[in-house]
Amino acid sequence: MEKLIHVLYDYIIEYIVRIVGVLLLTTILMQIFTRIFFKVPFSWTDELARFAFIWYCFLGSVLTMYKKMHLGIDYFESKMKPKGLFINRIFIYAIQIFFAIMLAYFGFKLLGIVGRQKSPIMRMPMKYIYMSLPISGVLYFILSINELYLHIKGESTPKPVVISDVGGDINL
């Protein structure tokens, strides 16, 4: 399972996020360039940038959770005894699993609603845009179940993210 998680998140999802990020940046730069030099920008760049941004945000949040780079406040956890910390983490993983199930479920329901709609300018089916919701939900679910399993098994150790600044290191 660890190998599958590693390949899925470290290679596939990270690669897709990078491609979508480059697409987002390229379309925004094209929009700026055409506004300055042609006075009439390409109409499709605004729409494509918006859609790329949606995918970038949702898949990027999954990748951020996988790399444990999300914002966390550990003040209360640092005050807990080991048993309380163990139970607290189980509760947190259960909330993550619930959120993932809701995101996937309502994302799939939304796909049924927008199935026939097309985007105004590019005429792209909107289900391709909204597909980021259930896909992210499923990816969150896989990740949260794996983290819960590792935590219960006793192999999970949270890795703090260290951000360097001028005055020294800041542990998050």
Rank of each mutant, 00 (worst) to 15 (best):
L139E: 04
M69W: 05
G112A: 08
E147L: 07
A49R: 01
Y75H: 11
S132Y: 05
G168F: 07
K127P: 01
K118D: 12
P160R: 13
E155G: 10
I97K: 01
K68R: 14
F86K: 15
M102F: 13
I135P: 03
G154D: 08
V114N: 06
Y93Q: 05
Y149V: 14
F58R: 05
S132T: 13
P160N: 10
S132M: 13
Q96R: 12
Y93N: 11
M126D: 03
L143C: 05
V162Q: 06
M124L: 15
I54C: 06
V62N: 07
Y75K: 13
W55P: 02
P82F: 11
S78R: 15
K83P: 00
V138W: 02
K79Q: 13
I152P: 11
M124S: 09
A100S: 12
A104Y: 00
Y149H: 12
G115D: 13
R116Y: 15
K79P: 01
K109F: 00
K68Q: 15
W55F: 07
S136L: 01
T157E: 08
M131G: 04
I92P: 00
R116N: 13
Y149K: 14
K81D: 15
K127R: 15
I163C: 05
C57E: 03
D74Q: 12
Y130R: 02
G72V: 10
S132Q: 11
V114L: 14
V166C: 09
M65N: 12
G60W: 00
G137C: 03
L85V: 01
F53Y: 14
I145W: 03
F106T: 02
I135N: 01
F106L: 02
